[in-house]
Design a protein around this nucleic acid. Structure first.
Lengths: 326, 326
DNA sequence: TTGTAAGCGTTATCAG
DNA sequence: CTGATAACGCTTACAA
């Protein structure tokens, strides 16, 4: 009776007493038993590469909200960018019989995703896509975003622009570097190896290390595009340590627009991505799939917008400095 | 046989073939069924008030790592500071028969915790304690931290120090305000109402709003202590908008030392809390309790340390400015 | 040593 | 309309 079948026979009084007793004794229906019986858990799993990167909390917030609104719960797994942990968590999520999985993990091996695809296990990629364009995914428009960022630098007058790419093992890393190169080429600007460094993760520390080669070069760039905000922040930190003023001597642009982007020194010019919305849409897409609704667009590409802030400026002073130094 | 009982009879070859077949068919043991039978899920639940606040990801990372190392998984729930969602999630976690619950949620009503206590449901508080000193908790030493922060400001020469407190519905908020008042009193300094504002959440926006009253006052403070880093950042943003230089005209100190604290403008002087360690210890404590090990200390208080950075300075210029204005 | 059966807490089905 | 029963997939205990 506790599951709410119409109990016309029971006196309301009795009914109440039973319920009262149940709550007093702390009765809780077992989601385990229900899930076992129903073969549905109303739970989604989510793989995140690094919860410490401020992009992800925003996405998670969106996912969480949307899932909750539709009666689903979220199991969050932080893979710490470890391939091993990712595989392990994926296994666990399946064992828990989650109804579907959201993958924000950037480095996800294609083989892992291929397995999910083969098993027809419902999943949606968020933030970073897979090679197979048929997979459900919600991603920012990397090409458009990167292009806008570089166009802005070029418009300011920069001609020697450095790129700090993200790991090329990730689709995001590849796409953004490819787009950056294409944009520079379109403007007939150099994008030789001396101007490109690849960070080995999406973190501030990696951005800092990777920027070293570009900024200590004989002919350093007057502007640098970082593949994400943390990398850009690392570049700025190094620049400052080398005595370069940002944006006076070096302009820096990032990608993502993490929550505190405008509070940094200087405020970070970056490509804004609607992070929470991305999470909301991904959750919606996954739930639609799980509940067997028809899906119109398998890949949702979200528009980005350049957020102009203080970390970019005309290369005037940089040129002067360079001349003075020479 | 798939659960690994010693199978001496089976030829290794057969054994392998069975396993191969199992994996090929995508067999996954059901954690649901196992949990139902074992009455153990090897899963912990965690309540977080706002995953967007950078303190929490660090804590979560610690929890996650420690739990994983001991064979437990984590279900993360973002309560969005909503009392309703917190209660709802707590119910869900119980229904999922998690082995224990970590509560980082600051505003947790005492009644909710009381219920867990009454039911003897294993739980540990992280980051913010409860009124009942008997509950298991891992928290930063708020008193020591706040005292160090204010001592620093006083040592620099500040005499008129403002406080932006966190919501007084939270233990953290209460403790930090109490400690701040006590420290000021100890130094025979004013801490009247005109010097104290209470932010209505732990966010940057709330810090910004709350700081209004103090900075637009006839006799504004020369330094402000914010109850956490985000609040402090809000104060700095407002100060800048009002044309006050930080730390030239106004010194600001925060609490927590969130990951990018030193990259802000200016770099934030703040009370460092070992966030990841806090998570690790909390998870360990919870698992010890779950597994019935003896617990020595029911409340672990972690030492904090003042991280001196650029947002504080002697009030010299501030005094000059004040005089000039007068 | 190996196989069989019971039971964990639900929900759905099917007689009564 | 109600109340008993089977089944979900696992583990464990006990019998063969």
């Amino acid at each position: 009776m506790l599951n709410g079948r119409a109990e016309l026979s029971l006196l309301p009084e009795t009914r109440e007493r039973v319920i009262a007793a149940a709550t007093r004794l702390g009765y809780r229906p077992s989601a385990l038993a229900r899930g076992l019986r129903l073969r549905r858990t109303f739970t989604l799993g989510m793989l995140v590469p690094d919860i410490t990167n401020p992009v992800f909390p925003s996405i998670i917030k969106g996912v969480e909200g949307a899932a909750h609104a539709r009666g689903y719960h979220l199991i969050l797994c932080n893979t710490d960018d470890s391939f091993e942990r990712e595989a392990s968590y994926l296994r666990v999520l399946k064992e828990w019989r989650v109804d579907g999985i959201l993958i924000a993990s950037s480095s996800t091996a294609d083989s892992t995703i291929a397995e999910l695809r083969r098993e027809k296990f419902p999943f949606v990629l968020v933030n970073s896509a897979s090679r197979a364009s048929d997979d459900l995914a919600v991603v920012p428009d990397n090409r458009q975003g990167v292009s806008a960022a570089l166009d802005h630098l070029i418009e300011l007058g920069h001609r020697r622009i450095g790129l700090i790419a993200a790991p090329q093992t990730t689709m995001t890393g590849q796409e953004r570097l490819l787009a950056a190169r294409a944009t520079l080429r379109r403007h007939h600007l150099a994008h030789e190896d001396a101007l490109v460094a690849v960070a080995d993760s999406f973190s501030e520390a990696s951005g800092y290390s990777a920027a070293r080669r570009l900024l200590l070069d004989a002919e350093p760039p007057t502007a640098i595009f970082g593949a994400n905000d943390l990398i850009a922040l690392g570049v700025i930190r190094l620049a400052r340590e080398l005595g370069l003023a940002v944006p006076g001597d070096l302009s820096v642009v990032g990608f993502n627009d993490i929550p505190q982007a405008e509070l940094f020194d200087p405020p970070l010019t970056t490509v804004h991505v609607p992070q929470e919305e991305m999470g909301i849409m991904a959750a919606a897409l996954l739930i639609d799939q799980v509940e067997g609704r028809h899906i119109e667009r398998r890949r949702v590409v979200l528009e980005t917008e350049l957020a102009l802030r203080g970390s970019t400026a005309t290369p005037a002073r940089a040129a002067t400095t360079a001349m003075r130094t020479a």
